[in-house]
Structure formats: structure tokens, C-alpha cells
Nucleic acid binder design. Structure first.
Length: 155
DNA sequence: GCCAACGTTGGC
DNA sequence: GCCAACGTTGGC
């Protein structure tokens, strides 16, 4: 039986990497480096090729889901953890067993209208979303199929 | 720029 | 193993 496609949400600050940057990237694909949170990393490790991703702009005006991408490469070592000059350098990561992974995602779609955080909060059906939980800061998080379908009806 | 919420670190 | 201190996230 084929693996069921799964759904995720990934946050990015548009001032550092926006959905437009993804559109302009070579092959419209980017590696998702810089994740330094174990829970987020573990979610990335469980991603499969073909999984779908809501692209979310955090620290934006307004914060919003702005489009869709798909996973095109499963988890592999994030080399920035060993780069002393990189902002995400992690001196505690042992090269013989690297701590941090990344995945590659590819652009699929940009919404004509972003679906704002405010709008998401107003939807009773989305009450359980990880994104909407108080204090939730996870930059990589799962989205249920029901949430996914419903969000697409809001676009 | 503020600050609440959270994760991590390190002294004990 | 506890927990205070610290750094970060991210909405406002």
C-alpha cells in the first residue's frame, strides 16, 4: 500500500526567505537549513517525498499562510551546523553524528490572497491547529488532512 | 521595541 | 534531577 501523503507547515520570516524567494530559487527548490529545535528536526526526519507543506510567513504583516510547497528530498545533514561563519553554527554538534538535518522543498503554488493568522483563528474548525496553540513556536509542524483541506477552501 | 512563552544550559 | 538564568521566537 502506498504511503499516505502527509501535510506540514513551515515558518519562514519573509525578510530572510519568502515565498517569492522560493519562486525565484534555482529549480524553485530550496534546502530548509537552520532548524535548531529537536522537535522540528524530528518532524523533518519523518517527512517523505511528495509530502505537502504550507509556507507560512512569520514576523510578517500580517503573519499568514502564503502558499504551498512539496518535499522533494528527505532529511539529510544540514552542513551549516559545522560552518563557523554561519549564523546557525553549532559547536556542540559532532561531525561523526550530526545533530541537525534539513529537507529540500519545491514551490507549488502561491495564494492570490494570503490566509492570515487572524483569519485562521476565526475558524472553529481549525481550533486544534498546532500553529494556533498558545505559545506555539514550532517552526516545522504537522497539519492534519482535515485542516489542510479546510485551509484551502479559505484561499 | 516589547514581552510572554518556550527550550536549553549549567550549577548545585 | 531541579530550577534559575539565559537566549530565541514571533505576535503585537
Amino acid at each position: 500500500m502506498p504511503q499516505q501523503r502527509r501535510y506540514w507547515l513551515m515558518k519562514s520570516e519573509p525578510s530572510s526567505f519568502s515565498i517569492d524567494d522560493l519562486i525565484q530559487a534555482s529549480q524553485q527548490t530550496t534546502c530548509w537549513d537552520g532548524v535548531r529545535n529537536y522537535q522540528a528536526r524530528n518532524f523533518m526526519r519523518s517527512m517523505a517525498i511528495g509530502d505537502r507543506v504550507l509556507f507560512y510567513h512569520s514576523n510578517a504583516d500580517p503573519p499568514a499562510v502564503v502558499g504551498i510547497a512539496e518535499v522533494v528530498r528527505t532529511a539529510y545533514v544540514d552542513s551549516t551546523q559545522f560552518d563557523k561563519k554561519d549564523h546557525h553554527y553549532d559547536p556542540q554538534s559532532d561531525p561523526s553524528s550530526p545533530r541537525w538535518d534539513m529537507v529540500d522543498i519545491k514551490y507549488i503554488r502561491k495564494f492570490s490572497q494570503p490566509v492570515s493568522l487572524d483569519q485562521l483563528r476565526k475558524e472553529p474548525k481549525l481550533k486544534g491547529m498546532v500553529l494556533l496553540r498558545k505559545g506555539s513556536r514550532l517552526s516545522v509542524q504537522p497539519v492534519t488532512p482535515v485542516e489542510w483541506e479546510y485551509i484551502l477552501t479559505l484561499v
